[in-house]
């Protein structure tokens, strides 16, 4: 499984490409808005950028691999091992990307965040969730023969409930709201992550054994 992670890490140039993608998207929003926007728009825009970045990044994780390499993985690892390592790796990548994106975003568009702890909890849970959900969807989409639109079609409706909760939590973080509502959001996000991870763990072997 760790070998898996190392293998993934070798595709660094793809990572740099995504990095440029994030930065230029943020720059684009900066050019469109020019100054601090209302906290709601700020928040929503940030997560939309992250979502598109996520779809672009994670869709590579299964699609870029050739049949031969998949056959090789098939021989050296169990399907559960593969999906778990993919999910971990993608979550990690998402976390790094989100943090970098946040840095660039704050530099250009200003920083209205008031409750940092809460906002970072949202970022960690968010990148974890995006990594997990998108890994599974990417596994499904890769079966259709590298069709990039299918990834977006499949993932957006599925990710919506998650994103909705996430935006709620991080908006509380930005506005510095310290209510009991936050704990509820966090519990729901954690349990969603757990459910999706468990589902992928159960279902992925069926996809893999092809």
């Amino acid at each position: 499984m760790y070998k898996e992670l190392l293998l993934e890490w070798k595709q660094k140039n793809a990572f740099v490409g995504i990095l440029i993608y994030v930065i230029s998207t943020v720059f684009l929003t900066y050019f469109s808005f020019k100054r601090i926007i209302s906290p709601e728009t700020y928040n929503a825009l940030f997560w939309i950028i992250i979502l598109f970045t996520g779809v672009n990044t994670v869709s590579r994780s299964f699609m870029q691999e050739s049949e031969e390499r998949q056959l090789y993985y098939y021989q050296i690892a169990s399907p559960q091992g593969i999906i778990v390592s993919k999910m971990l790796y993608n979550s990690l990548i998402m976390l790094v990307l989100t943090l970098i994106a946040l840095g660039v975003y704050v530099t250009f568009l200003g920083n209205p965040i008031q409750n940092y702890n809460l906002f970072f909890v949202a970022i960690i849970l968010g990148s974890l969730g995006l990594g997990i959900i998108l890994s599974m969807v990417s596994a499904i989409a890769s079966k259709t023969g590298n069709n990039p639109t299918i990834m977006a079609i499949l993932s957006f409706p599925i990710i919506l409930p998650f994103l909705n909760t996430l935006i709620g939590l991080s908006s509380n973080g930005i506005n510095g709201i310290d209510s009991a509502q936050n704990l509820k959001f966090i519990i729901v996000l954690v349990s969603m992550n757990a459910i999706v991870a468990a589902l992928s763990y159960i279902l992925f072997p069926y996809l893999w054994r092809d």
Partner: peptide, 8 residues
Amino acid sequence: VAAVYNIF
């Protein structure tokens, strides 16, 4: 694939 997506 469809069955997996359906359940998910």
